[in-house]
């Protein structure tokens, strides 16, 4: 039925008039994300899993801002409108929505939804905006990581790793679902991929009293851990063994203040208090909002191999 109505509307009234008929005005009044989710269910569900959806309601955020005492955090935690390389202003309403759909996609200047595609969307005007595929778009808030990425000279954008695409429909609601063909839908859960041993180059050196671990970030085009705020961490554990018996271990905590920079070598000393036969290196990470560590790599070296490689 809706197809017939649409067809007849186009036939008799022309595109511009039809556009106005089907506009759902509340969509142009900065609604909450769940309203967008009525049609864009897939993206909404991804966003619900993301930290962006919890940027205001997260218990961690509440605690760290002493119950929202730090107003300077508002700009990026409840942004009104996100623009390329510009720190946003904060909004006064619908704060529970955090960094919601309209924060990034609705622009006051055009009164329309901006995104990566030029699409026919009767309920709201849409505009294609190439900025959505550039790291610059994230740079207004994620300033530090953006600067690190910029220095790295990488061709890969933030979106390529943290919003990987998958062919899907933009809309899940019938009949709008079939208005467009499947497109590259970028993951709005804003993934933080777990690196593995391929991302780091490790070297060991035995000195008089120490084993020195040299670690180089060779594939992540920003420092790790990285953050403007929050407390993400990397953990480096060195364990000494003698014929299978654990004799001594030492943990190092790497913070975003002294991170492992892209293509730079970082050294960590482990003191030898007893002779050893094997040395095990374990690297883990813990994202700011996670309670559990995630394993990145675990490697065991024989003392002879370390000596031989020097």
């Amino acid at each position: 039925m809706i197809w017939i109505v649409l067809f007849l509307s186009f036939l008799f009234a022309g595109c511009d008039t039809v556009k106005d008929v089907f506009v759902e005005k509340d969509l142009l009044e900065r609604p909450e994300s769940k309203r967008c989710g009525e049609c864009h269910r897939l993206i909404y569900n991804q966003w619900m899993r993301s930290r962006h959806s919890k940027s205001w309601t997260s218990e961690d955020y509440r605690k760290k801002t002493e119950s929202y005492r730090k107003v300077k955090c508002f700009n990026c935690h409840i942004p009104y409108q996100v623009d390329t390389l510009k720190e946003p202003d904060f909004r006064k309403e619908k704060r529970e929505d955090g960094i919601g759909c309209v924060s990034c996609h609705f622009k006051d200047e055009t009164g329309s939804i901006h995104g990566g595609y030029n699409v026919f969307s009767p309920p709201h005007p849409s505009r294609k905006d190439p900025d959505y595929k550039k790291s610059d778009f994230c740079g207004g808030c994620h300033k530090k990581s953006y600067q690190q990425w910029k220095i790295s000279g990488s061709k890969k954008s933030c979106q390529e790793c943290h919003m990987p695409p998958k062919k899907e429909y933009l809309i899940q609601k019938f009949p709008f679902k079939y208005f467009h063909l499947k497109k590259d839908l970028h993951d709005h859960s804003f993934l933080v991929p777990v690196p593995d041993e391929k991302y780091f180059e490790l070297k060991l050196n035995i000195g008089k009293d120490t084993v020195t671990l040299y670690i180089k970030n060779i594939r992540i085009p920003h420092s790790v851990p990285t953050a403007d705020n929050g407390k993400p961490k990397y953990y480096i554990r060195g364990e000494f063994f003698k014929n299978g018996r654990h004799i001594h271990s030492e943990n190092y905590l790497i913070t975003s203040k002294d991170p492992i920079d892209y293509m730079k070598t970082r050294s960590v000393d482990f003191y030898i208090f007893e002779d050893f036969s094997h040395f095990k290196v374990t690297i883990e990470r813990k994202l700011s909002w996670k309670k559990k560590k995630e394993k990145i790599l675990e490697l065991i070296f024989r003392k002879e191999d370390i000596l031989f490689s020097q």
């Binding site: 730090k70 705020n229 407390k231 190092y252 905590l253 913070t255 203040k257 208090f273």
Partner: peptide
């Protein structure tokens, strides 16, 4: 040996402190 252990612990704790200071001094 004890001095080394205490010294290493001190450096570790001192360096991590920086991340807490920058909660405010960003």
């Amino acid at each position: 040996r004890k001095a080394v252990k205490s010294g290493v612990r001190f450096i570790k704790r001192f360096e991590v402190l920086k991340q807490s200071c920058s909660d405010c001094h960003s």
